[in-house]
């Protein structure tokens, strides 16, 4: 417990100091609202909050994340069959992962409309590459001895995959999921900066910022942060239950 106490104490101290500074020095609210004001803004309009959450997190983010991870995984399984293709596609995919893919958001709007499907498409494109690269690395991570073992047992390709390669790549799949959960949320929020129906967390942040309602912006950022850390925590928990020690 003492291990958690120190960072907790630090967090509380920052909050208190923040509140005291904003009130004490009378900092303009447009620069920095007090934590209490942010909290008030957070609970002021729950129906809008839930609509935004539903749109951006439960539709754009999660559906896009699902599509991106699954297709990256599938593509990796295909490429794993040919060392030649693997050597060609993996460097390209790693490079693509470093490119500003969110920029396709306006294209996605033209293809899938203003509503959440276009955001989910951006999220899927963003999460595809980490999923692909990590899965390929995982399938390749099997040691030479273990591979020889399966060959000596005359195991079929499917058995090699199911009993050796997939279990061995579990840590890699979780790493991809962790990276992607944050990436997906960012992508869904940012894609809304390029145009959206009048709902969504990214839309809310952009419009409230333009209206100088900084307390509402902070409240929404708090919600986004909660979604991000929440999904990360769930994945980390699942990993601890499923992962093995070596």
């Amino acid at each position: 417990m003492t291990r958690n106490a120190l960072p907790l104490l630090f967090g509380v101290a920052v909050l208190l100091l923040w509140q005291a500074a904003v009130v004490g020095f009378d900092i303009p609210r447009i620069l920095l609202p007090a934590p209490t004001e942010i909290f008030a803004a957070l609970i002021a309009d729950p129906s809008t909050l839930f609509a935004d959450l539903n749109q951006t997190f439960f539709h754009s983010t999660l559906i896009g994340l699902g599509i991106g991870c699954a297709s990256g995984f599938g593509a990796a399984l295909l490429v794993d069959r040919s060392p030649f293709l693997r050597r060609g596609f993996v460097p390209l995919a790693s490079l693509a992962g470093a490119l500003p893919i969110v920029g396709i958001a306006p294209i996605a709007v033209m293809w899938f409309g203003f509503d959440w499907p276009s955001k989910a498409a951006v999220v899927a494109a963003l999460t595809f590459f980490p999923s692909f690269v990590h899965t390929v690395a995982g399938l390749e991570s099997v040691g030479a001895l273990e591979r020889d073992l399966m060959v000596s047992l005359a195991a079929s390709r499917g058995q090699m995959l199911r009993k050796l390669q997939l279990p061995a790549s579990l840590p890699f799949l979780f790493a991809a999921l962790k990276v992607n959960s944050v990436l997906a949320l960012t992508g869904a929020v940012v894609a809304e900066f390029f145009g959206t129906p009048t709902v969504g967390m990214g839309f809310r942040i952009a419009t409230e910022a333009a209206r100088m309602n900084i307390d509402r912006v902070w409240a929404m950022i708090f919600v986004v942060a909660l979604c991000g850390s929440g999904s990360y925590a769930i994945i980390a928990l699942a990993e601890r239950r499923l992962a093995y020690r070596s």
């Binding site: 291990r3 120190l6 960072p7 104490l9 630090f10 967090g11 303009p28 447009i30 620069l31 920095l32 959960s181 944050v182 949320l185 960012t186 929020v189 940012v190 900066f193 967390m201 990214g202 942040i205 952009a206 910022a209 333009a210 100088m212 900084i214 912006v217 902070w218 929404m220 950022i221 986004v224 942060a225 991000g228 850390s229 999904s231 990360y232």
Partner: peptide, 30 residues
């Protein structure tokens, strides 16, 4: 290390890009 690192790690799970509009507005106000 013990006080800050958990927060730095946690902040990695926060989509920083979402802050962009606010940073722009806040800096503009300043």
């Amino acid at each position: 290390d013990r006080a800050l690192l958990p927060w730095i790690v946690a902040s990695q799970t926060v989509p920083i890009l979402a802050l962009a509009p606010m940073i722009v507005v806040v800096f503009g106000a300043a």
